[in-house]
Amino acid sequence: MTTKQPATLLIHPERAAPGGFRSLVPGTERASTVLFENIDKWKNRSGFDESIYTYGTSGTPTTRDLQNRLAEWEGGFATVLFPSGLAAVAYAFLPFVAPGDHVLIPANVYDPVKTLANGLLKRMDVTVEQYDPLVGAGIAAQIKPNTRLVWVETPGSITMEVSDLPAIAAAAHAAGALVAIDNTYSAGWYLRAFELGADISVHALTKYPAGHSDLVMGSITAKDEATWKRVKDMALQTGQCCAPDDVYLVLRGLPTMPLRIRHVERVTNEIAQWMQTRPEVKLVLHPALPGSPGHEIWKRDFTGSTGVFSFVLHDQYGADAAARFIEALEFFGIGASWGGIGSLALTYDLAKSRTHWPHKGALIRLNIGLEDERDLKADLERGFAAL
């Protein structure tokens, strides 16, 4: 069989859904009840058998199609879908921890992960400790005998530090801990997480895979069968599933994802480099730029960058100035998420959420969408004029 590149696999998958039907356009199968041919097949059904269908919550040809394409895309064993990216994040922890266990998360982690750590995981008597995202192999000093999982977010979704995934994975595996990565930034394309040591790859499919700012969904892809079964088992026990119509929209977005990412990569790099020339800007945090934290690791491990980056204004520009900047923009919306069709801008008060944040000027994060770069640059000029 001809070897296919990852972008081709999104259109021509190897793992066809059961039934033999093939098309460039995936179908949408809706079901709650699934009918069986006889009582014997009903009695011997299994939610872990991906070659059969048992009930709507355990999958339809539509959901299996997306799971198969995602697993192929990342080079993992199998994928489980979740109704949001945050649900997928939670289920990267929950099947693998018990009371008395210890997990590590980076200090630059997506804030809802900290909420999970201080909420549900704390109530479960799971200890969560933060580590410096640039610590690399030094994380071994924080790994304990009861450490079950190390969470990696690279680059960080606000301050953009790039972590040394292979070094972290080697230290974790030496102690018997699993490594889970939020690989949403690279869309599983520009960072091959399993090749670099991850056991679990989590995505907010809301972002680049769906790509059109019209749904929320998440996924977990596991490196091996044993890890996948633990995730799948808890998902089945708690009824985690996705609506086939939403799944279809992600399937529709996947074939164009590489083209969209290439566009935002080019435009983002151009704008980030232009930002470095602005007198109002103290620092640009973009992993592809020299001087950004972890840039050398990015050059080693990543094959490209996507559409999210941050910049820090000079010290005289505080929160009020950042608000003026953002509210003067026409094409950059004010809102969470990224990876969709439209550009977005937000500001963050890192003095409240990060220890030892060294900058007094406001930080602004941009998501670059699919607009013409000339319009985006002119819009940012309006923002700077408002300062």
Rank of each mutant, 00 (worst) to 15 (best):
S201G: 00
I200R: 00
L120N: 09
T115I: 14
L149R: 01
N183V: 03
P166K: 11
A177G: 05
G138Q: 07
S186G: 02
V150L: 06
Y208V: 00
P99V: 11
A198V: 00
H212V: 13
S213K: 05
L149V: 02
Y110V: 08
A140W: 10
I168E: 04
T159Q: 12
V126C: 03
N108I: 13
D132V: 09
D164W: 06
L104K: 07
T206F: 08
A117I: 11
E195S: 06
G197L: 04
G136L: 10
A204L: 10
A140G: 12
L121M: 12
T147V: 08
W151F: 14
V128K: 08
G119P: 11
M217D: 07
I139R: 02
L116S: 03
Q130E: 15
P166N: 12
V162Q: 02
A187C: 09
D132E: 13
L121S: 06
A117W: 11
G119N: 13
I158E: 14
H212L: 15
V152F: 01
A193E: 01
G119Y: 13
A193G: 01
D101G: 08
V109D: 09
A170D: 13
M160A: 05
L121A: 09
P106D: 12
L178Y: 02
H102I: 13
K144I: 08
A177W: 04
P166S: 13
F194T: 00
Q142N: 12
A140H: 10
P112T: 10
A117L: 11
A170H: 09
N146Q: 14
A204M: 10
L104H: 08
A193F: 02
V216Y: 13
E153W: 08
A177D: 09
L191I: 00
D132T: 08
I200N: 00
D111V: 14
L121C: 08
T159P: 03
A167V: 02
T147R: 06
K114A: 15
P106H: 12
P106C: 13
I200H: 00
F96G: 05
A204Q: 08
E161Q: 14
F194N: 00
A169S: 09
K122V: 06
S201Y: 01
L116P: 02
I168S: 01
I158W: 05
R148F: 05
S157T: 15
S163Q: 15
P133K: 06
L149Y: 01
V128W: 10
F96N: 06
A210V: 04
S201H: 00
P155D: 05
N183S: 05
V152L: 07
D132F: 10
A177M: 06
L205Q: 05
L215F: 00
L121W: 13
A107D: 14
T147G: 03
V202R: 00
V216R: 14
W151K: 01
T127H: 12
A117E: 13
P95F: 01
Y190P: 03
I158G: 04
R192V: 06
I105H: 11
M160L: 11
V135I: 15
K122E: 15
L149I: 01
Y208Q: 04
A180W: 01
N146T: 14
H212E: 15
